[in-house]
Simulated assay, not measured.
Amino acid sequence: MNRLAAVLLVLGAAAIITVARGGHELPIYPSFYPHEIEIRSLAPEDAVQPLRDGMIQAYIGGGLGFSATPAGDIRPVESLGSFIVVRTNPGSARVQDDAAACGVVGTVVRALAAQSDFVPHPYPVTPFHGDYLHHADLAAAAAARVSEPTAPTGDLKIAARGGLAQSHPDWSAREADWDAEVTEIDAAELVASAMFTVNGWLAPPWVRTGWFHAERLLADAASEPARKQRIDSDLQRLKAGNFTTLVERINLERDLVTLLTSGCRKLVAGYTVKREYVNVEFSAGIENIGYDSLTGLHSPMFIRTVKLKDFPWNGWLALGIDGKPAAAWNPIGGMTDPFGRLMGFAVGDPALLPSPYQAGWMLNRISDLPSGR
């Protein structure tokens, strides 16, 4: 009997040990450092003090104003802010021909250049775009062309759409019978409005390219049938991948943007720079901050790189963002507002992520290794 009891005791102990050794780990690890991410809806004026105090580590979006120079622990992150677009009114007596339109646009661009937050760049592909080097010579030629002296056009009625234009003392948002219109188009929203998710993939693949942004900004101004046909042809070939070499593709992109920027009826006059702020204080702040050149901190790259300074791993990350949730929290047709997209960057796990400083994409979680390894 004692022998039977001993055997049962050994078997029981073995069973217990086996269970103890059979632990289970999570099959999927999050692809970011913090183990908890809190997103708070905060108006810009309400976010300054929490950012200084370390109650939030970053504020997503522009508009954060400081009454004085921020302390050394509050650092700016710069990305493309808005495109500043000048459009002439075809019904205005001041712009009856192309030469007159160029004179009006030149006058408006010179007035914009006096604005402190405006960066003159009369070409839709900016240095923040990953494909800018393919267009650098065309951008320089456009800048030289716009800077050529033209007869000044006075007493213009300018319709101002957006904060930068409305800060000009002589321009009004209520101007009805306008000669030219100055519009501010948010670059991050331009990207977001064209991006969608299909089966875990962010698309379309060209959503971050300068030529695609140029088409979205300027294509509606092309009125000549031959020019419109060439624009449509180049656009269709680029989207269909109807080219054989890299050189052919780049030349197609350059040709498309050249067609879009010919004339003065509608022109990207320049851009603004968006500044978002982060707290880098030790130990309440963050480090290892990746961000996107077009969308700034509002990007999957920021969520997947940022790390709390007081934790080698894990930690509680608190982010502020302007605006309350306004879209459904589901990956199919939802998460289309800034709050929802930021949350989607955290809970989603797409195969490809926007490359932060390039026009294309990068692999997420997997590596593209050479064959044979």
Rank of each mutant, 00 (worst) to 15 (best):
A6Q: 12
L8F: 12
L9A: 14
L9S: 12
V10P: 02
V19N: 14
R21C: 13
G23P: 06
Y29R: 09
P30T: 06
P34M: 03
I39W: 03
I39P: 03
L42P: 01
V48K: 10
P50I: 04
P50L: 05
D53W: 03
G54Y: 01
M55L: 15
M55I: 14
M55E: 15
G61A: 07
S67K: 12
A71M: 11
G72M: 08
S79A: 07
S79Y: 00
L80W: 01
V86H: 01
T88E: 03
N89H: 00
R94G: 03
A101P: 03
V104S: 00
V105A: 04
V109Y: 00
A111F: 09
V119F: 08
H121I: 10
V125G: 08
P127F: 09
H129N: 14
Y132C: 12
A136V: 15
D137L: 15
L138E: 13
E148K: 13
P152F: 07
T153E: 15
G154D: 09
G154Y: 00
K157Q: 10
K157Y: 01
A159N: 10
A159M: 09
G163C: 10
P169Q: 12
E175L: 04
D177Q: 14
E181A: 07
D186R: 04
E189T: 12
V191R: 08
M195W: 01
F196R: 02
N199A: 14
G200D: 13
L202D: 00
W211Q: 05
F212Q: 13
A214N: 05
A214G: 06
R216D: 07
R216A: 13
R216P: 00
L217I: 05
A219Y: 03
D220S: 07
S223Q: 09
P225A: 08
A226G: 07
A226R: 07
R227S: 02
K228W: 08
I231Q: 04
R237P: 09
L238F: 06
K239P: 05
A240Q: 11
A240D: 10
F243H: 03
F243N: 00
T244C: 08
V247T: 13
V247N: 08
R249N: 06
R254T: 04
L259K: 08
R265T: 05
A269V: 02
G270F: 02
Y271C: 01
E276M: 06
V280P: 00
N288D: 13
I289E: 09
S293P: 06
L294V: 04
T295I: 00
L297D: 02
S299N: 05
F302W: 00
K307T: 09
K307P: 01
L308R: 07
K309G: 11
W313L: 15
G320L: 05
I321M: 04
I321T: 02
D322I: 08
D322F: 09
G323E: 07
K324F: 04
K324A: 11
A326C: 06
A328T: 12
N330Q: 11
N330L: 10
G333S: 08
G333Y: 03
D337F: 04
R341I: 02
G344I: 05
G344K: 04
D349G: 09
D349K: 13
G360Y: 04
W361I: 07
M362D: 08
L363Y: 11
R365N: 13
S367F: 05
